[in-house]
Design a protein around this nucleic acid. Sequence first.
DNA 1: GTAGAATGTGACCAGAAAGTCACATGACAA
DNA 2: TTGTCATGTGACTTTCTGGTCACATTCTAC
Lengths: 219, 219
Amino acid sequence: MPKQTFLNLPEDKRRKIVEAAIDEFSACGLENASTNRIVAASGISKGSFYQYFADKRDVFNYLMRVIEEEKKNFFRDKHPPSSGQDTFGYFRWMIKAGMEFNSAYPRLNQALVRVLFTEGLYFGPLFADLRQRSVSALTAMVTQARERGELDPQVELPLAVLVMETWSNAITTYIMREIQQQADVMAWIRLPETQSKIDQLLYVMEYGLRNTTPERKDS
Amino acid sequence: MPKQTFLNLPEDKRRKIVEAAIDEFSACGLENASTNRIVAASGISKGSFYQYFADKRDVFNYLMRVIEEEKKNFFRDKHPPSSGQDTFGYFRWMIKAGMEFNSAYPRLNQALVRVLFTEGLYFGPLFADLRQRSVSALTAMVTQARERGELDPQVELPLAVLVMETWSNAITTYIMREIQQQADVMAWIRLPETQSKIDQLLYVMEYGLRNTTPERKDS
DNA sequence: GTAGAATGTGACCAGAAAGTCACATGACAA
DNA sequence: TTGTCATGTGACTTTCTGGTCACATTCTAC
């Protein structure tokens, strides 16, 4: 919730501030970010900053809101795969669409991932609602899978959600780590090797690591 | 590498400093830890601190060395399960032994996990060697599994390592999160529910989420 | 034009950080 | 007792932080 003065600002000035904040957050995280540096990098005065935002948390929340909006738009435009699809197929599609989105806004995403995951805030109380939304979406998906008989009946529902959440997070952080070293991120994401890596990962999520082909000895 | 003066210190004074450092690191992480607070909590003077250690990083490295030593002892005493065991069984044993170890040193482990994972240092260059050792141990294990035909031949070796690493880390952070809220950690770890949760998780790692019993339609 | 509101500014404040250093204390040897 | 050396101390410096505020500038309505 930035103040009105910020929203009234000319587009390019606003952008400059946002860019500076993104740089700062992705370099230092939330706790260690310095308003002084953000101010210096964006070429505004200290006083102006506090006329736009309450504090650096406020800036971060604003970035969160922006990216959530963008993500919504992105997923709305990108039509989900043909209905009648298997739930695992749908999850695979979602993961890949998420990857494309992340690579479309690499710096912004990097800042958020850095703060949420490597600063541990994702699991903290601050972003409990964000996580709650993500978990309940996954729960809906898993419930559907169970109803369709796609899910191993031995696996309890919350566990399946945990597995999917873990992989979703792991893939996100993995992508973000790669993005730091890749020149053309979009190209890298669409590389057959990259795609096949993710496919394999999701294959393991579905079928596990164990070789079940020769004979299955249940203990 | 604390200085000799620290190592000459009487046992209880040394312990007090270590405890204070553990508290500080687990509460604030490495970056945000304050030597001032550590000094105040351990009842020594600022000057003494710098006579014992170079800086807070030095303290942290010392804690790392201590825990590594303890872990080595712990695993040496706890005999691995009967040989001839399946690799997945061995991994399962290792995970559980690791859990027991973590619950035996909950505060120290919490400090390290907090710094390594939630501060993202585990993936940074600072602890690259630590991670390297862990990855190469897993690689050896996976290679053995492949040779024995236990590993799904469709899964590439580095991917299997990644999967195991991810779960190992996920379980560790999960345990640490729980430990913060549990009174009797050891009891909690040995609870049938806890054990079964971990078992289920590792089951999913082996066999995946998908229901393969009714009929297997390969696409 | 001119009044008045909105916006912009950077010197300034208090607090905390890491790290230093001249000095105090204590232990032991001669 | 005296001298020497290791250990202990906290006031001090420097540098940073988030945040404020009296004042300057710009914009808008008249």
